[in-house]
């Protein structure tokens, strides 16, 4: 059962990603990206990371993708003209991508991986993540808050009307 779910999710994740970067209509592209993100959330559940899976759906597939859609609709970019790439370029890029993938894949999975470790109790639960965030990772957590603030200020500065 788990294997079946995994195979289906892997297929949809891959299809979603490929369609997201190749589709000419950006709105459809974003929707395919959402498909990709939700499929990945399935894997996070299978990999004992329920909290990250929930965030993936709420924050990533929800909030961030809505932001993308919002901008595309606001600017009416659905049919942004693209330069037509020739057949040769398409073939070359597929070959290049294939070589890149094989190199990466070979290095990542070539040998026998060490055996999986036993999972501690409550692994990946909200509680265990929260404790780690507020103890070991307190400084990065605070850094993230500054980062979000500065991103917000920056976005306002770049888009507000008028000068100083």
């Amino acid at each position: 059962m788990e294997t079946l779910v995994g195979i289906v999710a892997a297929a949809t994740a891959l299809i979603g990603a490929i369609a997201a970067v190749t589709h000419r209509n950006a709105v459809v592209g974003v929707l395919f990206l959402v498909l990709n993100l939700v499929s990945l959330a399935v894997f996070y559940v299978l990999l004992s990371a329920p909290f990250i899976a929930a965030l993936q759906v709420i924050l990533y597939a929800g909030a961030i993708m809505v932001l993308f859609l919002f901008i595309i609709m606001l600017l009416d970019l659905r049919r942004e003209e693209e330069r037509e790439s020739g057949l040769l370029q398409k073939v070359l890029s597929v070959i290049g991508g294939g070589v890149f993938f094989l190199l990466l894949w070979g290095a990542a999975t070539g040998g026998a991986a060490p055996a999986a470790a036993e999972l501690p109790e409550h692994f990946g639960s909200v509680e265990s993540i929260a404790v780690a965030l507020f103890t070991t990772y307190l400084i990065p957590f605070e850094t993230i808050s500054v980062l979000l603030l500065v991103a917000m200020v920056g976005a306002v500065l770049l888009t507000r009307k008028g000068g100083r």
Binding site: E118, F123, I144, M152
Partner: peptide
């Protein structure tokens, strides 16, 4: 993270998600 049985990987994934949100906000602006 699942393979090693350590939660650190999940924490960094959390940070990466937040960074992605910040980057998306600035990029779209």
């Amino acid at each position: 993270s699942r393979h090693l049985g350590s939660a650190d990987g999940q924490i960094l994934a959390f940070f990466v998600m937040t960074v992605a949100a910040a980057e998306a906000a600035v990029g779209l602006a």
